[in-house]
Design a protein around this nucleic acid. Structure first.
Lengths: 209, 209
DNA sequence: ACAAAATATGACCGTTGGTCACTTGGTGAC
DNA sequence: GTCACCAAGTGACCAACGGTCATATTTTGT
């Protein structure tokens, strides 16, 4: 009885192709102005069908956000596996990777920042929400591991609390950049990248051996 | 001809009383679910009249945000004028004031975080948007001044870039807290206040003489 | 071959932000 | 005191959109 398995795969594929369509539409028109009809048309489905796969527009947005987190996790994962660097050097590179991600995936980065807007009305029990929470934890775990690796190779102070620092960085990542990279930079009288780098510089001084 | 002046005052008062009403409604029902009709009723006006004072719902939200920034500025201003503290001690107290603000004015704090949602569609030339930008700069200026005061009394390292650090802190403030204080804390496995405090601790180590 | 179940459709609904033709009431000129 | 005028205010109305559901189509198991 391979039918149910095949159906499950097809359902999964449908779901993915809807998210693909949603990304194209949302990233082009913006979350607010894109409509579910737009997405349906792009996905070559009727509007009603979308609701067989996602409970609401917000949940569809959260599905995109989950992808964004995945992209970022993969970037950090690579850093973690780079054996040519010392611990503190890896930490140093975190800031650059933050910035690179935001620049190379501006739309996905934007979706990260709109977390607050879209989580509303999404039942916390839903698979998608749980997925984003899980992915979030994964990322914090990696950052935390990076720091611990620095402690192992003695390039980062022993008494640093890796978990807390990891969360602080994550907060900083989703804090300083928002007011910047995606706003009209014209109105800013500072360069957000420089701020992040400077901030990291200070932290590095605080934690290196 | 004191009539025009009086009318101007009255217009200003109306505007304020609309914001008052909007705060009560928005803070109770949430920005999304509150309607302009709700606000109109609360302000004892017709819906159409609201639009004589604010171009859109978003702009009304930004007016509330401007108030939030004002509250925060006043808090920081007090810290700046406290002559009993050394520079580094004042810096230390910043973190606590951040947290206090978020706890004592949760709705206003929330409105700060929803900046991204509401700025959309508000023309950058509007008085309200310019007001929020100005208030934002004021706050960064105060933080920056606090740091410089520490450099003057030699409790903070001379070579710290006060402006950059000020922006980094502001980013952190609007970064770590959002994912925390206002989310269901139940699902969090960490205490956001602790994270902020720890982060500050590290920074203090990096900048103190 | 056919009934049952899964999948898909799109007309339809309720709600809401925003508009606009119209009303109201204070003002200043005479 | 009267009256034309204009800013201030009104609320019926509109278009747009998220979401639903009765119906249609396709696939599945027997």
């Amino acid at each position: 009885m391979g039918v149910t398995e095949r159906k499950e795969r097809e359902k999964e594929l449908r779901s993915e192709s809807i998210i693909d369509a949603a990304e194209r539409i949302f990233f082009n028109k913006g979350f607010k102005h894109a409509t579910m009809n737009d997405v349906a048309k792009e996905a070559e489905l009727s509007k009603g069908a979308l609701y067989l796969y996602f409970h609401s527009k917000n949940e569809l947005c959260m599905a995109i956000l989950q992808r964004s987190l995945l992209i970022l996790r993969n970037i950090f994962e690579l850093l973690k596996e780079d054996k040519t660097l010392t611990g503190i050097e890896r930490f140093q590179k975190l800031a650059k990777l933050f910035i690179t991600f935001a620049k190379e995936h501006p739309n996905h980065y934007d979706s990260l920042l709109s977390y607050r807007e879209h989580r509303e009305n999404c039942p916390a029990t839903g698979e998608i929400i749980k997925g984003t929470v899980r992915e979030n934890k994964n990322i914090n775990k990696i950052i935390s591991d990076l720091i611990k690796m620095g402690q192992t190779d003695k390039t980062i102070k022993e008494d640093i609390d890796a978990d807390k620092l990891s969360l602080a960085l994550w907060g900083n990542f989703t804090g300083i950049m928002p007011s910047s990279i995606l706003s009209n930079r014209a109105t800013l009288n500072f360069d957000p990248e420089k701020i992040i780098e400077y901030h990291f510089e200070l932290l590095i001084n605080a934690i290196k051996t």
